[in-house]
Simulated scan of single mutants.
Amino acid sequence: MNWTWFHKLGSPKWFYEISGRWLPWFAWAAGILITAGLVWGLAFAPPDYQQGNSFRIIYIHVPAAFLAQSCYVMLAVCGVVGLVWKMKLADVALQAAAPIGAWMTAIALLTGAIWGRPTWGAWWVWDARLTSMLILLFLYFGVIALGQAISNRDSAAKACSVLAIVGVINIPIIKYSVEWWNTLHQPATFTVTEKPAMPAEMWVPLLIMVLGFYCFFAAVLMMRMRLDVLRREARAGWVKAEVKALVEKAS
């Protein structure tokens, strides 16, 4: 089997060129999808028969929670690729994605607290789902702190990769916490294998928001990675040529 395509993914130059083409598409898609999902979900979706209008927080909470977990799985995959195949671009992706994942986890916890106050009567409870999400936030902080605390780039990359791989065990705990333990948190709003419990006019805008959040993640991730690639490859000839072309274009 020819693995040339796989090793090509680790080329900073190739990534910079291809991401420059994809970035505008993901950015526009994120803006359109998030705007459409928010307007539909907040203004036109019917209120829940039990929770009333307070349920509308799910249009922010659920996409943020999905993305927070998916992002950490990506960190673990990048960690494996970086340790096994020694691809520097894997570390670039890991370092660029960690702050985004941390923000999404924080948003999920904050919106969950806003929803929990009228529903449970408390901003915070030591529920299995909430506690495992809080642990996820600390794992993100750990990855970010390791990457900044260790001056040697290779050592920092290895340390962050190991933590990302070890910490990924928390993801199935988050996912199945409502099934393994007696928790206050409700089960999944919708899954791929089961019919949604809510009507289409409520779950379709939620699906749009989820897609919008993932497009937003892709766009921001590529922006952060492109900046980091330029910083790391500053002495490379192709970077100098790229900067020269940008300067000439600006002038």
Rank of each mutant, 00 (worst) to 15 (best):
H61D: 13
A29K: 11
P24A: 10
F55I: 06
F44H: 12
I57S: 05
G82T: 00
Y59K: 07
C78Y: 06
I58R: 05
G82E: 02
I60K: 07
N53V: 10
G52M: 11
L33Q: 05
F55H: 02
G20F: 11
G31N: 14
R21D: 09
L42T: 09
F44M: 15
A29H: 11
E17A: 13
V81D: 00
L67I: 06
A93D: 00
Q50W: 11
S19E: 09
W14V: 07
F66R: 04
A98T: 02
L42V: 13
G31S: 12
V84N: 07
G31V: 13
I34V: 15
K13A: 15
P47V: 00
L83P: 02
L9C: 12
R56P: 01
I34F: 08
V81P: 03
W14C: 06
L83N: 00
A64M: 12
C71A: 14
I58L: 15
F15R: 08
L75H: 05
V84R: 12
W14E: 08
G10S: 11
S70L: 15
E17K: 13
F15I: 08
Q95D: 02
Y72N: 02
M74I: 14
D48G: 01
G52I: 05
S19V: 07
P63N: 06
S19Y: 12
L67V: 13
S19I: 10
Y59S: 06
A64E: 01
A98E: 05
Q69I: 08
W40V: 01
G20L: 11
A98N: 01
L38Y: 14
Q50Y: 11
T35M: 14
K88I: 01
K86V: 02
W14R: 12
V81F: 04
C78N: 00
W22L: 15
A97T: 12
W40G: 03
K8A: 15
V80H: 04
A65V: 04
V62T: 14
F44E: 10
A65I: 03
G37W: 01
C78W: 06
G52T: 10
L9P: 06
A29T: 15
K88D: 02
N53I: 09
Q51N: 10
I60H: 07
F15C: 08
G52A: 13
V77S: 00
A43F: 14
I32R: 08
A97C: 10
C78I: 02
G79C: 02
A43E: 05
A76M: 03
L67P: 05
S54F: 10
S19R: 09
V92M: 07
L67S: 10
L23E: 14
P24N: 10
Y59G: 03
R56T: 00
L33M: 15
A45P: 06
